[in-house]
Design a protein around this nucleic acid. Structure first.
Length: 899
RNA sequence: GGGCGAUUAGCUCAGCGGUAGAGCGUCUCGUUUACACCGAGAUGGCCGGGGGUUCGAUCCCCUCAUCGCCCA
């Protein structure tokens, strides 16, 4: 076959991916005990999700690792799947219902759930198709979904077990409440946003002291209906005399105590703070410390409700009017606030209003202002589960890369709060708890089991009703590393792939997901879920801005793949993934790295044109030519570096190593130096160089397969290395140890330096490449001379040299000169160059060389250096000085020769 | 307020005790049998400021500044 002029990513990607899938090239094989296992769990994307750059980043890294390990001979499992994303999915389906004039309430739970499943089958999981476009080699037949039967069984099993172990319980406490969804949400799903608000200063009359008021400052005046105390700092002299007294609340007329509590900050506001335990997390704790009642005055939709206070409303002239308060019933938070502030103002209890910037909690999804809300929810005792999870990281069974994330993990785990696991949604794992007529709870795997428990408990048959709520999506995600492998059954997969090898994810879900997997894994599997955790950064745009829909600065990875190919995108991502750094990615970067794909393609075309084909049984040890040995040893170095880079998750170094080797070594030097060999009479050498080229091209394709799977496989097949689609299952290259490479290396490196020197002189002297120039060697060793003779053809082509010879006698007029070790390269250019330019050029070189020499001299003249530094370093400096001195001397001589 | 990270060439980033590097950009030259999605060459840096440790600091320690993230 003949390679087309350019690489066509689109058709190649489509063809190869289908072929790989057809060949089951991504399949793990738990029965194959010959190979050691290596496994990665995909962080399950949201089933409503579409591929964004964040996915492209994390999946590219994972795919690179899994492809690399597969080549290294591991039985590699990359476990695919998606999660059911309770809130997000329910939102999506409710939105489409509302466009049909329907609502979830009107259709009922069962019909709604059915509808969600229907949506999932038809439109959900589109991301799995998109991952294929990226080239992700996931073991698709093993794809899982958190709502699958198997995973649901795991969820029930875990819930029941934790309940029986008293690690799951019900509790009435404050939760973060989304008043739009009317559901509890996790602390972690709350985003605090700084907003411009106000601080309202309100006077509370002190009971029994005429004309004495205590002024509280608050950001939420509407909650004063539910105030149960005013707190002042016990150290605060201003208020000490008031502690133990009571104040009368404006509007409601209730009496509440003044308590001393360190929570009150004397520096903030007036130093006196109103306490509303049912509507503020800090106040809740103050309330508990002082055994204060909790009064809710907002309902599930964050509207004023008077249910708990209407009995106690008092009429106090000029202070409290029950009619006003009754009028607030059903008002939104915002409207109630306006009405209350206006009323306080007109009654004269509003002292002042100050502008105030403060944090307001918002729901991450939907964006509603979160309301702390007092409800009964299911909780998981995360503190108990955290212990063994922390230990696993402490004793090194789990390693974070980069390590500093361990501190973040520890800090959160050591102060972990009870985990609210119930959600007031319909889409998710319904809580396996049933209630008897008196509210007694029975937790069981299914209704029958609950019924049996109930029958026993009550001594007679009673009707049970199941808990309406579902579990937090992260509850099921926390089980992902073992539930996907078949737990609670003892499957071969579970036995073989748990614990998994590495988890690759972003730092934004360390708490949400990573920590929970470790807790659940330790508790139920009695082992860590993964050994390494590679935490990568976030994808940002070129200017370092976070990509977001609202900013409109996001880039669609699929568009990039369409325009530049998946290989280019993947290579760009790897190149930019340093340790612990965000990835700034723009279209331009991908465009730039695409040139590398093209370069590889063109190099391959050159090889093809020169009849370079895969050679069966090639033995690197038999290579005789300096060029061949040099390339093979450079290849070994690249293989070693690339492997080391991948071993330490240095994707940037891996990419860079390949880039430099292919471009800087293989293309720029080897192929160029090979041209004269191919053109020469020496058929033996030409054949050998062809074989070396073929071998190294094969090594390059192997090295790049993990990151650029498409173009490499295409070439692999084209060059006859193997069947189409077979590169993925080839072995990872190993460095070869050649004996006696020193001479060959020295020779090639010296000739490269020689060519570079001549090129530099020519370029600086502005000699056009079309003009060939002879080069004479002065003071050259026989070694250089012989080498230069042997490489005459190559030097001629690459340095545009007409002939290279030893300089007999004196320098001709008008020469340019360059220093190469002990030799001086002389380019006779009379009439072509301006002598003063050459003088300036040499003078500049000399100045630079003298500066370097001076540095070394300074160092060596420091007695302390000689006495205290490592002797090897001292010797190195002495050698360096000798070289520098010689170079300076030669440059001076060269300068002196210019008349 | 607490914690973490960053600060190196115009830009994006490596390096992290012993002559400051890459890619992109810029400038110059160029179409020599793979490649203009190209080649050759050059230009470009008080390695954020100050102090300390050391024979020697971009690198280790302290401190300040600026920016970013997380937690309150």
């Amino acid at each position: 076959m003949t390679l087309s002029k350019t690489f066509d990513p689109t058709s190649t990607e489509k063809r190869l991916y289908a072929l790989w899938e057809h060949n089951k090239a991504f399949s793990a094989n738990p029965e194959n005990t010959q190979k050691p296992p290596f496994s990665i769990m995909i962080p399950p994307p949201n089933v409503t999700g579409t591929l964004h750059m964040g996915h492209a980043l994390t999946m590219t890294l994972q795919d690179t690792l899994i492809r690399w390990k597969r080549m290294q001979g591991f039985d590699a499992l990359w476990q695919p799947g998606t999660d059911h994303a309770g809130i997000a999915t329910q939102m999506v389906v409710e939105r489409s219902l509302s466009s049909e004039g329907l609502s979830r309430q009107s259709m009922g739970r069962e019909a709604f759930t059915k509808r969600v499943w229907q949506w999932k089958e038809e439109s959900g999981g589109g991301i799995t198709k998109q991952l294929r476009r990226l080239g992700a080699s996931l073991d698709w037949p093993r794809e899982r979904f958190t709502m699958d039967e198997g995973l649901s069984r795991a969820v029930k099993e875990v819930f029941v077990a934790l309940y029986n172990q008293k690690l799951i319980y019900r509790d009435n406490r404050l939760v973060n409440w989304d008043p739009v969804f009317k559901s509890a949400i996790s602390d972690l799903e709350v985003e605090n946003k700084e907003v411009n608000g106000s601080l309202w200063y309100i006077r509370y009359p002190v009971d029994g002291l005429i004309d004495t008021t205590l002024t509280v400052a608050t950001t939420r005046p509407e909650t004063m209906l539910g105030d149960v105390a005013v707190a002042v700092n016990p150290e605060d002299e201003r208020y000490r005399h008031l502690v133990g007294k009571q104040v009368r609340l404006p509007l409601t007329g209730r009496l509440v105590p003044v308590v001393a509590d360190a929570y009150s900050d004397p520096e903030k506001g007036t130093g006196a703070v109103k306490i509303t335990p049912a509507h503020d997390f800090n106040d809740f704790e103050v309330g508990q410390r002082h055994q204060l009642p909790m009064i809710s005055v907002l309902d599930a939709e964050a509207r004023i409700t008077l249910d708990e206070i209407k009995e106690d409303l008092q009429a106090v002239a000029g202070l409290a009017d029950p009619a006003f308060v009754n009028g607030l019933n059903g008002l939104s938070r915002e409207d109630a606030r306006k009405a209350i502030v206006a009323e306080l103002d007109s009654l004269g209890y509003l002292e002042k209003i100050e502008p105030h910037r403060h944090q307001v909690p918002h729901a991450e999804r939907g964006g509603a202002v979160i309301e702390p809300f007092l409800t009964t929810q299911w909780y998981c005792d995360a503190a108990k589960l955290a212990g063994p999870a922390v230990e696993a990281v402490e004793d090194g069974r789990i390693t974070f890369i980069p390590k500093q994330w361990e501190n973040t993990f520890f800090a959160w785990m050591r102060d972990i709060q009870p985990w609210c696991i119930s959600r007031q949604l319909w889409w998710g794992h319904r809580i396996p708890a049933w209630y008897g007529p008196d509210g007694h709870v029975f937790v069981a795997h299914d209704e029958a089991e609950a019924q049996t428990q109930a029958d026993k408990h009550y001594g007679c048959a009673v009707a049970l009703t199941q808990d309406e709520d579902v579990l937090d999506t992260w509850f099921s995600s926390g089980l992902w590393p073992f539930s996907t492998l078949g737990w609670p059954d003892k499957t071969p997969e579970l036995e073989r792939y748990y614990p998994t090898s590495v988890l690759v994810t972003g730092f934004d879900i360390i708490f949400f997901w990573v920590a929970r997997m470790i807790m659940m894994g330790q508790h139920f599997m009695n082992d860590v879920p993964f050994k390494d955790i590679f935490i990568h950064g976030l994808v940002r745009d070129e200017r370092g801005q976070k990509m977001s829909k609202s900013k409109g600065n996001g880039i669609d990875p699929l568009e990039l793949i369409d325009d530049y190919g998946a290989d280019a995108l993947r290579f760009t991502i790897c190149s930019l993934t340093g340790v612990g750094r965000d990835v700034k990615l723009g279209r331009k970067k991908v465009e730039d790295y695409r040139t590398f794909v093209t370069k590889l393609w063109n190099a391959a075309r050159f090889c093809e044109m020169n009849e370079i084909r895969a050679v069966e049984g090639f033995k690197p040890e038999t290579v005789q030519s300096a060029l061949g040995i040099w390339l093979l040893s450079e290849t070994s170095k690249a293989v070693e570096d690339a492997t080391k880079a991948l071993e330490s998750y240095r994707f940037d170094e891996y990419a860079l190593t390949c880039y430099r080797f292919v471009r800087g070594c293989f293309c720029d030097w080897f192929l160029e130096l090979a041209k004269p060999v191919f053109a020469s009479e020496n058929q033996d050498e030409a054949r050998e160089i062809r074989h070396v080229a073929a071998h190294v091209l094969g090594q390059i394709l192997r090295l790049l397969q993990p990151v650029m799977p498409f173009v490499t496989d295409d070439l692999w097949h084209a060059f006859g290395f193997g069947e189409e689609g077979s590169l993925i299952s080839q072995s990872w290259p190993e460095p070869v140890q050649l004996s006696q490479t020193d001479n060959a290396r020295a020779e090639c490196e010296q000739m490269i330096r020689l060519i570079s020197e001549i090129r530099a002189v020519r370029s600086e002297m502005n000699i056009p490449p079309s003009q060939k120039v002879p080069v004479f060697l002065k003071d050259a060793s026989t070694e250089i001379t012989e080498r230069a003779q042997r490489w005459q053809e190559a030097i001629g082509r690459l340095a545009r040299v007409s002939e290279i010879d030893i300089l007999e006698g004196e320098l001709p007029q008008g020469c340019a000169q360059a220093i190469l070790e002990e030799a001086t390269l002389v380019l006779p250019l009379e009439g072509i160059i301006d002598l003063s330019t050459e003088r300036k050029r040499l003078q500049k070189e000399l100045t630079k060389a003298e500066e370097e020499e001076a540095k070394t001299v300074k160092k060596l003249s420091n007695e302390n250096f000689i006495a205290r530094a490592n002797p090897e370093v001292v010797q190195e400096m002495k050698d360096r000085l000798a070289t520098q001195k010689e170079e300076c001397a030669r440059l001076k001589t060269a300068l002196a020769r210019i008349i």
